[in-house]
Design a protein around this nucleic acid. Structure first.
Length: 878
RNA sequence: GCCCGCCUGGCGGAACGGUAGACGCAGCGGACUUAAAAUCCGCAGCCCAUCGGGCGUGGGGGUUCGAGUCCCCCGGCGGGCACCA
């Protein structure tokens, strides 16, 4: 134990992170510590660490700091474990914000983007990340997107590209296509006009061809979070059911003979009470053509926007078209055809049959419009004579009734039976339906990758010849007009048809930015290649061993990347199918929000927080001392002003402190709360490690002094050292970085307690071992401090921690001599006993029952059962 | 609305189905100091209390010798929903 009253004789100078961090960054750079070849040597254990590359918004935010810190810990740890680690960085540089900046502030999207990149690169470099900057690229560089155009053309040749019509959000006032996020409460965000759906001809990638494989292959992704795989599986949405054809009784008026419906519940066909089609369905158009009220209803549905959330949350409404369809099995019986706003044109056939008894949405609809409700599945224990339904549909299994040839069957059997019957009569067919739709990539925007197609009146859509790639965006564009600047550029789109030479026009749509991010991980393997990728490089480096990013990308980005990898394989660009072998999804960074008394949002630096004696806290506005309200902890956002600038934090405390706090706060998959006191605590710990090492260094034996043969306090320290190695290693392997931090705190406490015992036998060597180990264990998390500490312990070693291998725990020092067992009576803790490791069970039970407190709890009753879990617990049952 | 998560002291969290609260932050007490900062030592889930006991992991139920952990129901908060990235 330390003598509390004795001050440290000579405190060393404080750790000067501001000088040390740039110095070590320069040293790593000078030695090219993080460079790897495009094609690794055959005997190398490759490991590809990748964090989702950032959108260059202008400044890095705490979410970036967290993301790249997590990735850097993995990269540095794996490097120390002897892997050849590739860890690149680039920019997801196309997208809407650059165009918004152009429209709002008159800055060219290109200039805005490249300036942002320069700024953010400098900020990232201050974090001390083990990145190989030589591989950097931006997706808005023609050197990148030109290769993407080549991939598009290859996919086209392989039959994976199609031109189809689809619906977009249209702002009739601005004359612009809107993104879903630009539609607020059904209105355009700038014009305020009611948004309409509009049909456009667009380019699609054939992701649905891979639906079965994208679903099946999820099983093999054993290092992906289960919930992400579940979300993807639900998104792909395989369902078994039937397509059923309903004959229209008034075919002439409708201009169609029949309506085809997809259903997963063909067993409830006899409980049908109506048929409903989407507003975009041809039958709805037919109804609208002859009935102005139907036309009005269709027009109303068009004002709902295209997002599924908006459609499903809208009030369920419908319109009776007056058309009727015949029941496939009941001659003479027909049902009304409605247009319904909750039927999605994109799913199934855009038409459903409504069975209110066994589908809640149909039930709500039937009750609202007074349609009949006939139950056809009888719940167990109910009497068919008396069973009725209120407003709640019955969706579980039961016995079919009221259903002709299906009566008496259970639901699965009835499904098979009715499909057989439909197929016999040619009225329908059993099918597998997929929720996944083809990927529409056309965007009516300037700041994206031009789709390399030329439209010719004579030849149709013609691919741009490969020797004319890249199709480069024009620089001189006008954002003062609404719409797509590429479209109204005076000359850019006018070209000769590559096929017939007559005047033709370029495609003026650009790619969805998800396309850019669907293959960047492959490009990193050979970022300068003349082709999209170099086979030898991608085949060696892919798949990414550890991919790290936000859960918000769980479905789209990851699914599109999985599709792209398959499409690139099909077109001979690479050989793997799954791009990301391991996936980790991090939580968001949150912060308290603050408001002034009059309700204005306040920045954290505008308020002064003080602690009250009862543990609560209060806040005042700095300067004025007016009271402020401490609000809830929420995701950092500019609108709520609860943001913290990473640059300011790094300037005040250093990169290592920011990294350490981020890692220590909580498990990385959860949302974390950024707190000023937490950062300050992390900063104190950096100083504490520095003091431990700098104070001890002068008295330590020379580097390389063997630590074996220690006894007493020295052996205890060595045990702590080796248990910490084991504990930190396990924690890092499990992504439990907060636990790794806790183990290192415990270790620092253990080293601190050895001061007064420094004269014990072997203590000097044990302390050297402990401190050198401490430096190496913190290195993935606080790389600069690790180098600084190590250089003080081993001056002139000529080797960096970044170049050293990971410490190994000595199994002999991990063994415990005695164990503490909990003694329970009926599952309640009554005592603990200390026994030698491996003591016989009989002796343990005797010892446990001899405890006074245990005796009292037993109360003289005989012990009926004795449970012993070695090393853990004894439970006595009376 | 649909799909997927999360919920443990004042706070962040730890815990192979086996001693709930490791470690840290904030707090309290002490040492050092003219003083402060920094640092060091100690206390600390809640309730009753002397040993000790009772209650406790969002709420309710269940399985088990034993549940924060497994199962069912409910509540609150968050992510995604195909043109934000």
């Amino acid at each position: 134990m330390n003598d509390a009253a004795t001050p440290t004789p000579k405190d060393p100078p404080r750790y000067d992170f501001a000088a040390a961090e740039p110095r070590w960054q320069a040293e790593w750079d000078r030695r090219a510590c993080f460079a790897v070849p495009d094609v690794p040597p055959a005997d190398a254990k490759k490991y590809y660490v990748l964090e989702m590359f950032p959108y260059p918004s202008g400044k890095i935010h705490m979410g970036h700091v967290r993301n790249y810190t997590l990735g850097d810990v993995v990269a540095r740890y794996k490097r120390a474990r002897g892997h050849l680690v590739m860890h690149p960085m680039g920019w997801d540089a196309f997208g809407l914000p650059a165009e918004n900046a152009a429209r709002e502030r008159g800055i060219h999207p290109g200039k805005w983007t490249w300036d942002n990149i320069a700024n953010m690169r400098a900020e990232l470099q201050r974090m001390g990340l083990s990145l190989e900057w030589a591989r950097e690229f931006a997706t808005c560089d023609a050197a990148y997107y030109g290769k993407q155009q080549k991939l598009f053309l290859d996919f086209w040749k392989a039959g994976l590209v199609e031109r189809k019509e689809s619906w977009v959000n249209w702002d009739p006032v601005d004359g612009t296509v809107l993104a879903n996020e630009q539609v607020i409460d059904g209105r355009g965000w700038r014009s305020g006009a009611l948004v309409e759906k509009k049909k456009l001809s667009q380019w699609f990638l054939g992701i649905t061809k891979y639906a079965p494989d994208l679903l099946a292959a999820l099983d093999g992704l054993d290092r992906w979070p289960e919930r992400v795989k579940l979300m993807q599986a639900n998104w792909i949405g395989r369902s078994e059911g039937a397509r059923v054809r309903f004959r229209l009784t008034d075919a002439k008026a409708a201009g169609l003979d029949e309506v085809e419906v997809f259903t997963t519940r063909p067993d409830t066909l006899f409980g049908m009470s109506f048929l409903a089609v989407a507003a975009e369905h041809p039958l709805a158009a037919a109804a609208a053509a002859r009935d102005p009220n139907a036309a009005e209803f269709v027009a109303e549905c068009r004002r709902m926007g295209t997002s599924e959330a908006a459609i499903e949350q809208a009030e369920k409404r419908g319109y009776d078209t007056g058309f009727r369809v015949a029941h496939p099995f009941l001659p003479g019986i027909s049902f009304p055809v409605w247009i319904a706003n909750f039927v999605l044109m994109e799913y199934g056939t855009g038409a459903i049959f409504g069975c209110p008894g066994h589908d809640q949405r149909d039930m709500d609809f039937a009750r609202k419009y007074g349609l009949s409700v006939l139950p056809v599945v009888l719940p167990p224990g109910e009497d068919p004579a008396t069973f009725t339904l209120g407003d709640v549909a019955y969706t579980d299994d039961g016995k079919i009734f009221n259903s002709d040839f299906l009566n008496g069957l259970d639901v699965p059997t009835a499904k098979r039976r009715v499909i057989e019957k439909l197929e016999e009569g040619g009225q329908g067919v059993g099918v597998v339906n997929w929720r996944l739709r083809d990927w529409g990539i056309s965007r009516q925007r300037y700041w994206g990758c031009p789709i390399p197609v030329i439209h010719c009146d004579a030849c149709g859509a013609v691919p741009v010849p490969e020797d004319q790639l890249p199709v480069v965006l024009p620089e001189d564009v006008d954002f003062s007009r609404p719409g797509n600047p590429l479209d109204h550029h005076p000359s850019w789109k006018h070209v000769a048809c590559p096929s017939c030479g007559k005047p033709a026009v370029r495609e003026t749509d650009t790619c969805d930015t998800f396309v850019d991010s669907s293959w960047y991980f492959a490009r990193f393997c050979s970022p300068q290649a003349a082709e999209p990728v170099t086979r030898a490089a991608v085949d060696a480096w892919l798949p990414v061993d550890q991919y790290i990013g936000g859960i918000e990308h769980a479905i789209l980005h990851l699914l599109y990347s999985r599709f792209f990898t398959r499409a690139m394989k099909a077109t001979g660009h690479l050989q793997c199918e799954e791009p990301f072998a391991g996936l980790f999804t991090q939580g968001m960074v949150q912060h308290e929000s603050y408001k002034s008394a009059d309700g204005r949002w306040l920045y954290p630096e505008e308020v002064e927080i003080s602690a009250n004696a009862d543990g609560t806290r209060s806040a005042v506005v700095k300067g004025s001392n007016e009271p402020a309200v401490i609000g809830r902890v929420e995701a950092m956002s500019k609108s709520k002003r609860n943001t913290v600038d990473p640059g300011a934090i790094i300037g005040k405390y250093g990169a290592d402190t920011a990294r350490w706090f981020i890692l220590s706060d909580n498990p990385p998959e959860r949302d974390m709360e950024w707190t000023e006191s937490g950062v300050a605590g992390a900063f104190r710990f950096t100083q504490r490690i520095w003091r431990l090492a700098a104070n001890a260094a002068p008295a330590l034996p020379p580097p390389g002094t063997p630590a074996e043969g220690a006894t007493g306090a020295a052996r205890k320290l060595r045990q702590a050292t080796h248990r910490t190695i084991a504990g930190v290693t396990e924690a890092l392997e499990n992504f439990a970085f907060n636990v790794a931090v806790a183990r290192i705190h415990e270790f620092a406490n253990a080293i601190g307690e050895t001061d007064a015992a420094a004269s014990a036998e072997g203590m000097g060597a044990a302390r050297r071992e402990a401190l050198e180990t401490l430096a190496r264990l913190v290195a993935p998390m606080m790389p600069h401090l690790a180098e600084e500490v190590f250089s003080v312990l081993c001056p002139g070693a000529g080797k960096l921690v970044a170049e050293m291998e990971w410490p190994q725990a000595d199994p002999d020092l991990l063994k415990a001599e005695t164990v503490t067992l909990a003694v329970q009576v009926l599952g309640k803790l009554r005592a603990t006993i200390e026994v030698a490791a491996g003591a016989p069970e009989a002796e343990i039970f005797a010892l446990a029952e001899a405890e006074e407190n245990v005796q009292r709890a037993l109360g003289g009753k005989p012990v009926r059962k004795r449970i012993h879990v070695p090393g853990r617990v004894v439970n006595l049952v009376v």
